[in-house]
Amino acid sequence: MPVRRGHVAPQNTFLDTIIRKFEGQSRKFIIANARVENCAVIYCNDGFCELCGYSRAEVMQRPCTCDFLHGPRTQRRAAAQIAQALLGAEERKVEIAFYRKDGSCFLCLVDVVPVKNEDGAVIMFILNFEVVMEKDMVGSPAHDTNHRGPPTSWLAPGRAKTFRLKLPALLALTARESSVRSGGAGGAGAPGAVVVDVDLTPAAPSSESLALDEVTAMDNHVAGLGPAEERRALVGPGSPPRSAPGQLPSPRAHSLNPDASGSSCSLARTRSRESCASVRRASSADDIEAMRAGVLPPPPRHASTGAMHPLRSGLLNSTSDSDLVRYRTISKIPQITLNFVDLKGDPFLASPTSDREIIAPKIKERTHNVTEKVTQVLSLGADVLPEYKLQAPRIHRWTILHYSPFKAVWDWLILLLVIYTAVFTPYSAAFLLKETEEGPPATECGYACQPLAVVDLIVDIMFIVDILINFRTTYVNANEEVVSHPGRIAVHYFKGWFLIDMVAAIPFDLLI
């Protein structure tokens, strides 16, 4: 008679799926529990143990900040960024110097990925580790590398530091407007667009060049630039800015003055950032001319202004700041037409079709709590990747769950009947059967004279019903998954307890 339990259901295979997918890609990662103190490590794979030199037993239950890997060259700011990422709910990448158990130093890129439950609360953290440099290539500990984003994938490793954006290309926007319009339909740009040429040739750093990471940081200074100062900065030398009595002219307006920039070969870094931020506020060169004239017309309804409409929906549905990093990277690809469009465009503009998908598509409701890094690593669709929660398995109709209350009560009843059979069957065979043979035949009273025979008949009927119930009862397979398919249940029961239950259900007393 089957006594099969499996009270692990309803099970959740999400954690096993993450481990299996990460292991298949030869990654070095740990999984931490966000619900406990210090976000203790609950799993670390073999790749991480080989990377740091510690065994799994030495890593388990330690804080996922990996303070046991810190050393003299470990930056405090990087460690603080990892700790801050564990307090938030967004994906974050941090470069930090770690030390192995043998004392060797290596520069590592740590990717902190939160995993949320159905309520939107962070319950786990996945920390992925990628070695960037070994100890002989690690720089000085005073050099802070965590304020910069990861290198873009479309640049060669040897040319990542030679990417320079020439400031004269930004200063000569109005001069290039006529050349853009003359391109017409034969050019790649839309009317009114501004073409910015980027020099990728390796050259020595000069005062006129600005690194790509500095251009990325310009967006942080746009908020500090007032509207009046932006307007004066875009007017140009024809209309000098008016300053109040006793007030000095704005240095932001002076930063885009061609006369002032041409007199000296070098520009201050602050002026460069502010000038680029001011130019980015204009949607095209037409807006710059309109600002000089004193009238700013409404933005025209053409394809170039609607190019950012799908980007707005993608940004609203993005799951991490990696989408913004990807957008900034692609927006700086050289030799393309940049349409400086305000994100607050007309909502009635139709979304044009684009061959290049900048932001990841909208994630469906079932995966809105899973970050983009987890979705990318697992390579699963929205119909396959579940949320991290207890999910009731989908069972067929008329199927009994093996952990249901009805099955528990039924098993206790069958257990009592088995005990009765084990006690009274030998007793009936030894004593009652002998008395029946010696006594007179009682054929007239039937079952009324033999109450134990009636009980034995009921017990046999219950055993037959138990066999039928076992054909529709779920079970737990070797992978700790609840199986509810009727065919698989029948095959599993035939290979197991079916023969024993059938022999126990045969009414031998009635056959004798």
Rank of each mutant, 00 (worst) to 15 (best):
R328S: 14
D355N: 12
A290L: 03
D287F: 07
F129G: 01
R252I: 03
S209I: 13
R312Y: 11
T13D: 11
I358R: 11
S26E: 10
K93G: 09
S261D: 12
G47N: 12
A350G: 10
G103M: 06
L380D: 03
D136P: 14
D219G: 08
A307T: 12
R269P: 14
Q75V: 05
V370A: 05
T329R: 12
I330V: 12
D259Y: 09
R164A: 14
I42N: 01
I18Q: 06
L315I: 15
K28Y: 06
D111K: 08
V132S: 12
L296M: 14
E37P: 12
T162R: 11
L165A: 15
D199M: 01
R271Q: 13
V110C: 11
V215F: 06
A57W: 07
I123C: 10
E91H: 11
P347C: 15
V374G: 01
F68D: 01
R159G: 10
R77G: 10
G103V: 01
H143W: 14
F340A: 14
L170V: 05
R181L: 08
T152A: 05
E58C: 01
Y54V: 01
S266W: 04
A223N: 13
D16S: 15
T305C: 07
N12I: 05
P157A: 13
R77I: 15
A228E: 05
L296R: 15
T74C: 01
Q25C: 14
G189Y: 01
R280P: 09
F125K: 01
S182W: 05
S283Y: 05
K344V: 10
A121T: 09
K344H: 14
L225V: 10
W154Y: 07
A244D: 12
S266R: 07
G186A: 12
P241D: 11
T367M: 14
R76I: 14
I19D: 01
P347I: 04
Y327M: 08
L86N: 01
V36Q: 05
S284H: 08
I42W: 01
L109N: 15
R4Q: 12
S55L: 02
L87N: 13
S322E: 13
S26H: 15
A217S: 08
H368T: 14
Q335A: 12
T319K: 07
A203C: 10
A160K: 06
E130S: 06
I30Q: 01
R159P: 06
L296D: 07
